[in-house]
Design a protein around this nucleic acid. Structure first.
Length: 116
DNA sequence: GCCCTGACGTGAA
DNA sequence: ATTCACGCCAGGG
């Protein structure tokens, strides 16, 4: 893939670190990549990366636990299938907070001290 | 430069 | 629960 900014690489690295069977939202990923408030950049980076590198993009959800793609779209259906394949349940169209890889307190700590 | 569009988030109404 | 206004910023026209 063509040149991605250092920020984009940092983002993809964080996405790669999401454990199988868990999910994370855009803001959390941005924060752990040292890019607080840059959730949209995470979305941008994923779009550039999808075909190029093997990142578990399907583990990235919106803050409310819903899939970012519009319901009914192919992408939405695919992501849901990939999540189900990892035993991540979506109740009423959204994933429970319990399945998020990093909880808020965890994230707060990460903001002051880099993750393990 | 200006304006609009996003795989977004947050807070307020 | 839903809307709305912002804040954010990379790209494209």
């Amino acid at each position: 893939m063509p040149e991605l900014s250092p920020a984009a690489h940092a983002i993809l690295e964080v996405v790669r670190s999401i454990p199988r069977g868990r999910v994370a939202n855009y803001a959390q990923i941005a924060a752990r990549a040292g890019l607080i408030g840059r959730a949209r950049l995470v979305a941008w980076a994923l779009k550039q990366a999808d075909a190029a590198s093997a990142v578990p993009w399907h583990r990235v959800l919106r803050a409310d636990g819903r899939i970012a793609f519009p319901v009914g779209s192919d992408a939405h259906a695919l992501q849901l299938r990939l999540l189900r394949r990892e035993r991540v349940p979506a109740v009423a169209g959204r994933v429970s907070r319990a399945f998020f890889a990093w909880q808020v307190d965890d994230l707060d700590r990460a903001l002051w001290q880099p993750p393990d």
